[in-house]
Structures are given as C-alpha cells and as structure tokens.
Design a protein around this nucleic acid. Structure first.
Length: 936
RNA sequence: GCUCAUGUGGCGGAAUUGGUAGACGCAUAGCACUCAAAAUGCUACGAUCGUGAGAUCAUGAGAGUUCGAUUCUCUCCAUGAGCACCA
C-alpha cells in the first residue's frame, strides 16, 4: 500500500469537492455538533496530544455522518497570546503576520491528519471580524453591570508587566515563565462571575461531564453555607461582622481576628498598641502571596488592645490582627474558636489565649437506663525510656491507662493525680496537657449497669521513679506495666484509645459531637445546633444566614498588546463611555515598539493618536488594557455556527438548531479556566436571548496526555523521547498514526508512546489492505463469519459512540483474524467493514471503497446495521464451580433449564471428584452462566 | 493538610446490574515459506508444581460482606491531578 500517494489523492479530492462542507441551514436531518478545543497556533505545530483529541472527535463525526446526521465539525484558532507578542517585541513586526503564518502551518498539519473539518467555518480570535463580537459581548456585560472597573488587590507580575488571574498562577509564580507574583492594589476591569456562582454549580448536575472536572469546578466556586455574626466593639459605637460556618461554636469564641487590611483596624487600635499594629501591617503588605502561604505557616499576629462583645454571652474577648485571616474572603474578620478549629488552636496556643471546649465527641452506644458520672483517663509518660504507664487487667478488660471516677466536688485534675498515686504508687510527675472531654457510653459487666460518663483526659510527664505503696480496692486486681508505643495498640477500649488519639494528634477537636458549655445548645449535635443558633441570631438581630463563595471576580484586563482592545472610553471628567455597536470592531493600532511600558501600563499607551481622541466635543482617552486570552475562547462555539455573520453573533434560528455542542473534547488543563468562563458567558448570552441553551457543552471528555517513550511528559527536558506527528505521518502514514493513537488505550488516560506499537498498527492496516487485494472476496455468503461480523458491527458502533476506540479496534482485529482463517470473504461484509474502519483510517478505506467500484466518497454511505439474532448462540459454555472455584466447563444449549444445568454439572468427571462423598450444602444456578456447588 | 482519580502479565491494556481474570496488540519463542534474510502465515506465551489430566498462587497491601470479589464496604500504601490559612 502506497499510503503517501493515497493520502495525497484523497486530501486533494476532499478539498476540491468540499466533501465535509456542512450546510447549516439543512434542518432535514438530525444535527450533531462535534467540537475540539481549538489550539493556540504556536510555531511548534501540533503535538501528539492534539492528534489524539482531534482524531477522537473526528471518528465520532465521521460515524455520525454515515448514520444520517448533519454534522458540524469545525476548527479554528485561539490566536491572541503571548508568543506572538514576544515575537513582535523581538522583531518589531506586527504579531498578525506571525500568527497567520502559524495558522497556515497548523491547517496544513490538520489536513495531513485527514480530519474532516469544514474549513468554511474557520475562525481566529485575533481577526477583527471575530473580535468585533468579543468586544460586543464585553460592551453588553458593561451595560448590564457585569463588567466593572474596580479598585482591588491583584496578582501583579513584574517581569511580565501584567496582571494575572488566579488560574494563571502556579505556586505563587506565573504559569508562563515562572516569574514571581505579588499582590498590588490596582484599578481593574473585572467580570462579576460570582453573581453566577449558584447557577454554575447547579448547572453541573445537568451535563455529562467527567465527575472529577465537575468536582473541580465546585471546589473552585467554593460555596460555603454559614452565618454572619455581628460583634460590637467594647466602648465604641462600632461593630463588625464575621462569616462563620460554625456559628454553633459561638460560646467557644475566645477572641476575634481582623485581617491586617481591615478598615476598622486603625479605628479600634488603642494608643499603646498603635506602633506594634502599624509595624505588623507594614510587614504584611510587603509580603507576596507566596510568602503569606508557603513560607509562613507559623502563625503571627498582634493584639489591637480592643475588645469585642460576644453576642451570645456578652463576654469581652480580645481583638487581634493576623494575616492568617484573608481580607478578600468573607468579611475579612473571624471569630476564633480555638477548641474546634486547627488554625485558631495553633494561634491560641502560641499567644496563650483561652480555649473553651463547647463540643464533645460521643463514643460507645447510649442506653436508656444510664447512670451519669464524671471520670478521668490519665496518660503518664516516661520521657527518658520512651514508655507509657499502663494497667493490665488481663481478662477483665485488657490493657488500659490509669482511669477513675471523680468524687464529689473533686476537680478532674486532682482526681487524675489521686488515681495515679492510688493505682500505681508513682508520685513524682507533672501535668503536660489537658485533653478534650469525651462523652462515653458503656456497660460495666462487674456492676451490671449502663454508664454515661464525661471523661477528661490528662497527660503527665514522669519526673522520677519515686514510688509509694498502692492503695487498692479489693476488686482491683491488675498489673502495672510500662510499655512502649507499639504496645499501645493493645488498648482496645474505645474511650482510652480515643484519649490516646487526642494526645498523639494534639490539636483542636474538629468532629461532630454534642454541645457543652453552650447554654441553649447543650446536648444538641452540630447540625441541630447550627440551625438553632442561626434562629437565635436572627431573632436577636445580631446575625443571619449567609452563603459565601471562594470564587472571585474574573480579572479581565491585561497590560499587553496582543489581545482584544477593551471598547471603553475614559472621558476627561472621569466618566466612562462604552463604544456603540456601530463603532465595533475597535481595531488594534500598529505600533513601532510592542514592548511593555516600564511603568506597568499597557503598550497601547504608546499609540497616542489612537488613545487620545475627541468625543462629543470633549477630550477623551481610550482604555489601553486588552482582554485576557480566555475572552475569545469563551464564546467561539457559538460563532462556528454562523462565522461570517456581520449583523450578529450568529443567526438565532441557526443557534437554536445547532446548540448545544454534542461532544466536546479537550485537555483537562482547562477544567476550571476556559470551561468555567465559557459556561458563564453562555449563561449570560442565554439570559440575553442569544444562546438557546443554559449549558453550552452537553458532553465533555478530556483526552489524556501522550507521554514520551520513557513514560515522562514530552517536552524540552527529554527531546529524544518526544514525538513529532509530522515524522510519524511521513514514515507510517496518517491512517497509522490515527489508528495507533486510538488503539493506545482509553482516551482519558495518560499513555506512553511506543514505536513498536505504531509498527503493529501499520501491520494491521497492511493486513487489511492485503485481504482486499486477495481473491478471497467473493459474491457468496460465508456462514462462518455471520456471527463475528454482526458482533463486530454492534461493538464498533457502541464503542465509537462511547469513545472506547481501543476496544472497537480490538474487535475489528478479531474480525479480520477470523476472515484470514476463511477461504471466502463475502463482498457484502467486505464493503460494510470498510465503513466501520473508515472513521479511524479514512484514507485507505476511501481508496479501497473506490477500488471496489464506487465513484463517490464513502463518507456519506449508510452506517452498517447488525442482526441481534445472529449474535445469539444456540449453545454457550456453562461454568461449573465447586465452592467458587472453576472445576469444569461444559457446552450446553441456551435453553437448558436450571435443573438440567445442575444435573449436567454434577456429571462432569472432574466435578465428581470434588463432590463425591461430600455433603452438598447448596447449589447456585445462574441461567446462561454457571453452576456453583457448595460442599462441606 | 484537603478534594478527586488511578493501581491487573515483561509492556500498552481488556473484563464491573458481583459469575471462566488477562480479550486485542506489543515483545519473546517455535514452525512453515525462502539458498538465506526480511516480509508474511500459523502456533505457544501470568507464576509455581506435574509426563499428563490437573493442582496451588495471582488484579497495590490488609481486613470485611458473599456460595462466589478486579468489580461492593472499611483501613492503609503508592502514583498523578487540583486546591491550599476559604473561617
């Protein structure tokens, strides 16, 4: 097979005859919209990962055409971006030329791959006839108050000279280039995406997307339900709100923290603390995000000297400032409950602030007749020998720590000291820490009684071995033993074990339990208490239910040249005007020098004639920021439907017919960026009556990464293991490349490249080719192939539908292997098989189709059908198990009933060996599958 | 730390309303064709024991549910992705 000749021939024919051109106005057939994430046209060209994703949609698109769908399968280019800009800076040439040249290269490669795109629908985000509408959408967002200019802290990258969005930052460094990013206050254009937060979460339930991607979007939006609580400031007629998800722990709030940037800080700080507070604020402001998170896990903060009033009990609690509270989340202020929050616990420990437990964990099972009592569990640790003091009760309860019941009016700590002395005789030790109380239910066999105890745990350190005589009751019959850590596992008692857990994990009690020290909440669990507290807060007008989101405004301005100009004019009087529809597109001006301005303003500042204009007889300046890369890609799926329309985004009737996208394939790296922004813009356009659907992408699939032959990501690091699709096409042909990439494994998985596998793919396609050149193809039937043929049609069809290309291919291999074993290959099967293979190997199947006497393309032939009755067998292999292990197989008729199956099974010699002389306990018969005989 | 995904032969992978583990391919070995090689066609191919029939073990580790678990539950380990002081 001369693949390069064949591929050349068919590329030419498909192009000249416009075989894949879609008439979008043809509504007579059902529609199918198969979309790829369009590439950024870099100079490097396509990589192996593109090939996989693009081939996948192409296979489905080709099958759908044959199934009678009108298929829209377009491609375009996300052509604004940094590399073109950097090229422009370096050479002084306009980035447009560079971009269009790269687009040409890309298109050539996409043609070479045999992808059945309708190039009539091509778009590029950097072309004015496209970005006119990006600007139009922005103008409308502005008019609808969803695009705003606000003063806000932003991620500023000095080296790139621009502001970055959160998803453009990785580990505190810029995604492109890896430069440091700091926080800085700037006037910024933002899109108010949080307004759509709830809808964007709810919409996820209606679409067929990978669960992990949906989850990522949910986390990114970060909805949390809680309450706003108002705290008054002592001695001042002021108050502040805090956001909390745990208002049930309000009785345990022992201090409050404001973010250093909080507006109230200066107003409430007392004179004596002013210097300290100012110093701290200064330190925080110079810290970058990275320093605040990565390098500074250790809590810092200062006391303001002011006190807040806890609204539930009117207690005065100190107000601190600390950078562990973020100005940008919630209200920039928190109530701290150190007993039940890790961070507050750490902070309180460091600054010696009160810790009040208001929730205790429940262990054991409650019983209706319980006796209440208070008790202690004491852990005594001998640091010198790294051993713990335990008491071994042997059969009467196993190994335990020291424990005991608190007597009347005794303090828990005194009880613990007394019990250690009485039970073990040790007297010289000191308290290390007191652990959270536990609410424990248990049954005491020796007393035949149910108890409910509130138990306090203590940890002591042994100071010396000094020992006095024990003071034991008669029934106290045990051995005192010092044991090392690994022996602690012998402690099976739930209560004692829990106490030890608290000791090991030293920290706040985060889990659920019942409330204590909380007046009207006492005895309630977390959920009940939260609801009751919110009711109480609302009733007393000191708080209310509140939902908070992690999602922030989408920063929509970049200080770069190569992006859509923002269609905004700043008037001399400070007012803002938005360009009218007929003024669009606002075209990027050409520059002498495309490099960024030193002072951090956009390169467009240099286009003075363009910037400084007169409007309505007054002086005015154009906005010089441009839009981020994700602007043009947030709506392109709408434009493909009607790309040349200069009156509107796209014709409404066409949109109504073609949306939503039926299949969208692209890399998982866009899980939150592009895929969230697109959903928001589409939702906005839906509300404007432009997009006909709430969700633009009905089904989404992520292709995995194609790794180098070493199993490591391809790239600059290991160029020797990198694969260039061009080379593969030249050496093996596009059909082989497509076939191999589809056969590698599941589309979503990361898979290493294997050149031997490519050769195997080529070998199979050659094998098919030879079969069609052989004289086996005859105009007669071959019953032997009937079953496997129908199975193959069925499996390939459903597997393509579900994007399981690897198993579809393996079925086609099974079919071809079967044909090779036969002397005749019925012509009708031979023709139908070409259709099955065509979506994956379009070039050679077109050629073979033609060789078999057709002058029209195979692309619109009718997809093969299968006959279910031909797949079903008259017989099947019945499995016979004894105690779940396969001991025999038997070919039986499909209509064999249960009794017969059992009888036949028992007659198999090997089975007999196992069951003879044994008692048969049970026989499980699964019709059409197996018989399992259970013996004793 | 949190969330999610994944873990099966020498390798890529198949099989999940729980029912023959390893389809298909790669690699390897053997046979045929050939003067020979390549190509091609056919055969074998998880491990261990056994001449064989067959047996035992085996789907990251450990437990559990079940007549039966790669598939369900719990705990742990490893890898990958995302989030990361989000109150």
């Amino acid at each position: 097979m001369n693949f390069s000749e064949i591929e050349k021939k068919w590329k030419k024919r498909w192009f000249e005859e416009e075989v894949f051109k879609t008439d979008v106005w043809d509504f007579s057939k059902p529609k199918f919209y198969a979309l790829d994430m369009f590439p950024y046209p870099s100079g490097v060209g396509l990589h192996a990962g593109h090939v996989e994703g693009y081939t996948a949609t192409d296979v489905v698109a080709r099958m759908k055409r044959m199934q009678g769908y009108n298929v829209l399968h377009p491609m375009g280019f996300d052509s604004f971006g940094l590399p073109a800009e950097q090229y422009a800076i370096k050479t002084g040439n306009h980035p447009d030329g560079f971009t269009e040249k790269n687009i040409k290269t890309f298109k050539g490669q996409l043609y070479d791959l045999g992808l059945s795109y309708d190039w009539d629908k091509e778009i590029a985000t950097s072309r004015p006839d496209y970005y006119k509408w990006t600007q139009w959408i922005f103008a409308n967002l502005y008019k609808d108050n969803l695009a705003k200019l606000i003063d806000m802290p932003v991620n500023w990258c000095e080296e790139l000279g621009t502001v970055l969005a959160n998803d453009e930052i990785i580990d505190g460094k810029s995604e492109r280039g890896g430069y440091p990013v700091i926080r800085k206050n700037m006037k910024q254009w933002v899109i108010d995406i949080p307004k759509y937060a709830d809808e964007l979460i709810e919409g996820l339930d209606t679409i067929d997307w990978p669960e992990s991607t949906k989850e990522m979007q949910r986390n990114w939006i970060g909805k949390s339900i809680g309450a706003l609580v108002t705290f008054k400031i002592k001695g001042k007629n002021k108050s502040f709100d805090v956001f909390t998800t745990r208002c049930d722990t309000l009785f345990g709030a022992t201090y409050c923290v404001l973010a250093p940037e909080h507006e109230l800080v200066d107003l409430i700080t007392t004179k004596d603390k002013k210097q300290e507070v100012d110093d701290y604020k200064k330190v925080c402001s110079t810290k970058s995000d990275m320093e605040r998170t990565e390098l500074n896990k250790d809590k810092t903060g200062v006391f303001t000297g002011a006190y807040a009033i806890n609204p539930v009990n009117n207690k005065e609690i100190p107000i601190w400032i600390s950078d562990y509270v973020l100005a940008s989340y919630g209200t920039g202020a928190i109530m701290a409950v150190p007993a039940h929050d890790e961070r507050d616990y750490e902070f309180a420990k460091k600054f010696d602030i009160d810790i009040i437990q208001v929730l205790e964990e429940v262990t054991g099972k409650p019983h209706k007749d319980e006796t209440k009592k208070n008790s202690i569990v004491a852990i005594l640790y001998d640091e010198e020998n790294d051993k713990y003091l335990t008491i071994n009760w042997y059969d009467l309860g196993g190994r335990l720590f020291v424990g005991g019941t608190i007597k009347d009016k005794e303090k828990p700590i005194d009880c613990a000291i007394r019990e250690i002395k009485e039970e073990t005789g040790y007297v010289d030790f000191e308290l290390v820490t007191e652990l959270p109380k536990i609410n424990h239910h248990y049954y005491a066999y020796n007393k035949d009684k149910y108890f409910n105890i509130e138990c306090t745990g203590f940890v002591f350190k042994l100071k010396s071995n000094k020992q006095e005589s024990q003071n034991l009751d008669e029934d106290e019959n045990f051995k005192v033993e010092w044991v090392s850590k690994d022996k602690i596992d012998e402690i099976k008692d739930e209560l004692h074990h829990k106490v030890y857990d608290y000791y090991i994990n030293d920290g706040a009690m985060i889990g659920d339990g019942i409330h204590i020290n909380s007046e009207f909440l006492n005895g309630l669990n977390k959920e009940e208490a939260i609801n009751k507290m919110i009711d109480w807060l609302e009733e007393h007008k000191v708080g209310k239910r509140k939902v908070n989101y992690r999602l922030r405004e989408w920063i929509f301005a970049r200080q770069r040249y190569w992006g859509e100009p923002i269609p905004i004019i700043h008037m001399e009087d400070g007012s803002i005007e938005v360009l009218k529809d007929e003024e669009l597109p606002l075209i990027l001006p050409e520059l002498e020098d495309y490099s960024p301005c030193k002072n951090g303003t956009s390169p467009l500042e240099k286009a003075t004639n363009w910037v400084n204009i007169e409007r309505n007889g007054k002086k005015a300046k154009r906005e010089t920021s441009t839009m981020p890369g994700s602007a043009g890609s947030s709506w392109y799926f709408l434009r493909y439907i009607d790309p040349k329309n200069d009156k509107e985004i796209a014709n409404k009737e066409l949109l109504k017919h073609w949306m939503p996208v039926d299949l969208y394939v692209g890399g998982p790296e866009h899980a939150v960026g592009h895929l969230l922004y697109s959903r928001m813009w589409n939702r906005y356009l839906y509300k404007k009556g432009i997009s006909p659907v709430e969700e633009p992408f009905k089904k989404l699939v992520h292709q995995g990464m194609v790794l180098g032959a070493n199993g490591i990501k391809m790239g600059k690091r290991y160029p020797e293991f990198s694969i260039n699709p061009n080379d593969i096409i030249r050496e093996y042909g596009a059909d082989t490349l497509r076939f191999y990439e589809m056969f590698m494994g599941p589309i979503e998985a990361d898979k290493p490249w294997n050149t031997k596998g490519v050769e195997g793919a080529k070998r199979f396609l050659d094998r098919v080719w030879r079969l069609y050149e052989s004289d086996k193809i005859k105009d007669e039937d071959n019953k032997n192939l009937e079953k496997v043929y129908n199975q193959t049609v069925k499996k390939v069809t459903t597997d393509y539908e579900n994007l399981h290309f690897n198993t579809a291919i393996s079925q086609m291999m099974i079919f071809i292997n079967a044909v090779y074993k036969e002397d005749t290959y019925p012509k009708k099967y031979a023709l139908e098989f070409l259709k099955l293979l065509n979506p994956i190997a379009p070039f050679m199947t077109e050629e073979l189709w033609e060789k078999m006497g057709h002058d029209k393309t195979i692309a619109y032939e009718t997809w093969p059908k299968y006959d279910e009755s031909k797949i079903k067998d008259e017989t099947y292999t019945m499995i016979v198990q004894v105690n779940g292990k396969v001991r025999g197989k038997l070919e039986v008729y499909s209509n064999t009933n249960k009794d017969e199956m059992e009888k036949l099974a028992k007659d198999i010699p090997n089975v007999k060996n196992y069951i003879d002389g044994k008692e048969i306990v049970k026989v499980i018969v699964v019709p059409k599958k197996l018989v399992n005989i259970v013996i004793k």
